[in-house]
Structure formats: structure tokens, C-alpha cells
Amino acid sequence: MPVVSLRDVSKVYPPTSKGGEPVVAIDGVSLDVEAGDVYGIIGYSGAGKSTLVRLVNALERSTSGEIFVNDRNIAGLPERELRGIRLGIGMIFQQFNLLNSRTVARNIAYPLEVAGMPKAERAARVEELLAFVGLSDKAGAFPDQLSGGQKQRVGIARALATQPSILLADEATSALDPETTHEVLDLLKRVNREFGVTIIVITHEMDVIQTIATKVAVMDQGQVIERGDVFDVFSNPQHAASARFVSTVVKGVPSPAELAVLQERHSGRIVTVSFRDSEVDQSAVFGEFTREGVSFEVVYGGINEIQGRPFGHLTLSLKADDVAVDAALARVRTLTNVTEAS
């Protein structure tokens, strides 16, 4: 049962100047997010990720299509009704967006005030949240006295205050350094595991997806061009744009320029062999080459691990007569993917 379900959703902005073209930010997107998912949405700037995530809590209104949140179609609901629905959807932001005029504790209490919780209960809940994000000693501090990572932890505590079932993370780690990024991602993992909160993460950083997402959708020009399990998309991207993204974090696939260098340096035929998970037996692959008397040398490569499942790419320089190499490659192709540099 999906918690968030988009059905053929579009968002079109009116032209910015008279006689200009309307801007299609989201172009017929359908997407299901299941309860308990950490769903990553990735794409370059301007691909429509931010707009898409804001359609889920109706900070942006869709132009057409249906948006189901906990089985309720929120497309076209009046603003007043949406306010109640937003209490069930937390959101964190790239720039944290904390109120500088309020202390940490009062920032976290803000959604509870909006929800109308009595003051005494509010204080107890804030204390709980501060402990969860590890900032009990900062209750009385103001946001400008905190580091970026601390600010985002306050943001997470605020987003969780009303015990939402869904958390939207809009480039939540893009303003943080790598170490702090991992602290925040670990916290988000705990939010997902301990509270069962469904998380939608939008990011342009592939390693964020690699670290916490279970599923991923790749966006380009307002459309979802590829989606699936993170492992599948990473180990075998189908779309050129996804492949470009994946190559930023996946080690071991030589770029065309690197291939040219390899070809110059090595006299044999250059092929790249992919290994996914336990599907492919490495020794079987190497065995085929040996059987045909093909000598091989590993010239490039790398092994990655996503969600505990390894996959990798090895680029080999093969030396033997062409007939033997072709025969070996034909048999290896029945075992796994092989691409030969031309």
C-alpha cells in the first residue's frame, strides 16, 4: 500500500514574460512510495526535484493529476484543509530554515503550537526530541550559535515533532561537509528504522542515495526517466543520464578518455566485464579466458557495495589471437555483461 502515490502529475508555471512559453516543471510523473521506504529522488539542478517534493505537502499546487497521501487525494484541496494534512508530513531543508528569533527548544515546539498541543505536553515532547537528536544541552541556544550539522538536527527534531508518517528531505545535506553529512544521514536512518517514518530524499549527491535510500528515481527535465531498487539502478543504469550520475560514485568504469589512454598503453583488446552480486561467479569468468588460452591483465576496475551487495567492473587487456579471444568473449557474454572498447 503506497503512502504517497502520484498519478500523472504535472506542474506548469505561467510564462514569466508576456508572450513567453509556459514552464513545465513536472511533466506527467507517476510515482509510488511504499510505507517504510527511503525513496531517493536524484537529478541535476532544474530537473524538477524540489517542485516534485513540494507537491507532496502541497507547498506547490499541481496543475493536473492526482496526489494521494495516506490514500487521500490532496490535489485541489483548499488551503485550510491542507494545513491539517501538513502536520502529518515533516520537512527538512537545505538551508535548515530555523527561526532565528527562537531558541532551539522553541523552534522544535513550533509545529506543536500550530497543532494546538497544551504547553506542558509540548515541553515534554520537546525534551524527548532533543534527546533523540542528541542536543539536550542546546535547548536554550539560538540557531546562529549552532554548527550546520546541529542546525539540521534541530530541523529534523522540528520535522518529527508532530509524529508525521512521512518526512520530506529537500537537499538536507547539501550545505554540510562530508563528515557531518554522514552524521545527519545516520540520524535519518534511525528515524526510518525506529519510528517507521517513510522518507523521501531529494538530492543531487549520489552518495546520499547510496548511503540511505532503498529505492531511487532519476529525474530529468521534469520527468522520471528511471526508477527502481538502488542496487539495480547503480549496478546497471538503463538511461544515459542515470549512467552519468552513477559514474560519479561508482568506481571502476573507465571514462572514454581513460579508455583511450588504456588502449594506447596496452596492446591487447580492452574489454570491461561487470560483476553483480552473487549472480556472476568471477572464477568462472576467468576460467573461460584460461580455457581458450587467452592471457589477461587487469588494467582498470573497482568493486562497490550497496546495501551490503557487492558489484564491480573490471577492465581487462586480453592477449591471444582474435579467434580465441572471440570464442572466450562469446562464452563470457552468457555469464555477464561485457563491453569492448572499439
Binding site: 505537502n57 507547498l59 488551503e79 485550510r80 491542507l82 494545513r83 491539517g84 494534512i85 501538513r86 502536520l87 508530513i89 515533516g90 520537512m91 531543508f93 538551508q95 530554515n97 530555523l98 527561526l99 532565528n100 513550533y110 509545529p111 500550530v114 497543532a115 522540528r158 515533532a161 508532530t162 520530506l168
Partner: peptide, 12 residues
Amino acid sequence: GVIEAARSVGAG
């Protein structure tokens, strides 16, 4: 962004 954050928790 601060106003957006307030809207996101349901503030009118």
C-alpha cells in the same frame, strides 16, 4: 525559506 518551513508544519 523560513516562511516555507512554517507553511510546511501547517501554519496559516
